[in-house]
């Protein structure tokens, strides 16, 4: 299951992640994106500094934080019983190729519901000037032993 005492716990900040133009294209193709996420000229014409990452791209940064939780013995998170409940991304600005980002995950809440645990995470993503770029909100459902 999961240790309810990790509610409020903040995990260490990630190393810097450099958003690559070809990584954006790879992710865009994998999510069946069209020209808006593949065509550099279109992105520049729209006023962006480079290719814009698809809206779900920050999941890559959220994963870094989640790996820390899974590795954290105190959390006691049994990942084999985890189901993704919900996911949200809130953008302060678009993420573009060339961005250097760091992320930090906090356990927002741990709730018990009918034998299951619902764990909500908040991952904040910053640029090098410590300006918030995006917040990723995620809830995992940890199924109980009988569920």
């Amino acid at each position: 299951m999961v240790n309810p005492n990790i509610e409020g716990k903040t995990y260490p900040r990630s190393e810097a992640y450099v958003v690559g133009r070809e990584k954006i294209r790879e992710f865009a193709r994998a999510t069946m994106a069209g020209e808006a996420s593949l065509d550099l000229d279109k992105a520049l014409a729209a006023g962006h500094a480079d290719l814009v990452a698809p809206p779900t791209f920050p999941i890559v940064l959220q994963e870094f934080g989640l790996k820390l939780v899974i590795a954290d013995k105190e959390a006691e998170l049994d990942f084999s019983r985890v189901v993704h409940g919900d996911q949200k991304f809130v953008f302060e600005r678009a993420i573009v190729a060339g961005d250097v980002l760091t992320s930090q995950l906090q356990v927002a809440s741990v709730k018990s519901l009918g034998g299951n645990h619902m764990v909500s995470f908040e991952t904040k993503i910053y640029d090098p000037s410590e300006t918030l770029v995006c917040t990723a909100l995620s809830t995992l459902v940890v199924r109980g032993a009988d569920a």
Binding site: P55, V83, G85, D86, K88
Partner: peptide, 21 residues
């Protein structure tokens, strides 16, 4: 969300996006 981005013509116009699975 891709049909919405195609309609917008710009992925940078997405302010937030959330779903329940």
């Amino acid at each position: 969300i891709q049909p919405v981005i195609q309609w917008l013509g710009d992925a940078g116009k997405v302010v937030d996006y959330g779903v329940r699975f």
